[in-house]
Amino acid sequence: MLDQLARLGRSGLDYLASVGRAHLLLLRILQGLSDMLPRPRLLIQQLFSVGVLSVMIIVVSGLFVGMVLGLQGHYVLSKFGAAETLGVMVAASLVRELGPVVTALLFAGRAGSALTAEIGLMKATEQLSGLEMMAVDPIKRVLTPRFFAGFIAMPLLAALFSAIGVVGGHLVGVGLLGVDSGAYWSQMQATIDLHEDIFNGVIKSLVFGFTCTWIALYQGYDSLPTSAGVSRATTRTVVHSALAVLGLDFILTALMFGE
């Protein structure tokens, strides 16, 4: 009985300690900003591996999600004779929810896991230690550029996802199901609000970018420097990011759209 209580206490303390370490790491990552600005090449390199290499999966997923929304939305809306509002439905779901959320989930799987594995392996192969002994702070030089690359890339990827999705919905709705093209766009424009919908969507994806990259970097930096440790850290990155994104999405949605 007491043993179990002790185990519970220990795991609680361990958890708190890891939360503390994650925040300290974040602080040091952010402090590295002044060190990174004179070296834009580091950021560009990371924008390439975090952003550019994720474009393909984002574009393809966005297109298909938009097309499915077109099909399903038309099925429901045409029952009420409101097929012209298909554009509204597609755009609102994409811009408000699916764009930021699905992009963040794909990002966690595609870029987040890669970041964790990279940092974890750099730790396991003593590259981080090596940098430290060369009097180079590995957090500033390795983690900071990756963090800001994730933070910048996420809203751009989410915008790409939503834009491609709207076009995908148009392809199916207008091209296949015969919704009027003018109605598709005009209904959309009349209903979707720049502040309410699009800015809030961008804010969501900024928050998700911050969180997912932070989780990925922390898990990599805090991983045990063994192959099992890195693989576990990679799994944790995907799981924790997905949970964090969905949880935060609920909170943000409640704050933004709840009255």
Binding site: M122, T125, E126, Q127, S129, G130, L131, E132, M133, M134, A135
Partner: peptide, 16 residues
């Protein structure tokens, strides 16, 4: 201080 130290790691620790 570390600028005055060089360290050769067991694995080499080269940046890959």
């Amino acid at each position: 201080l570390r600028k005055q130290m060089g360290m050769l790691f067991q694995s080499g620790a080269l940046l890959t």
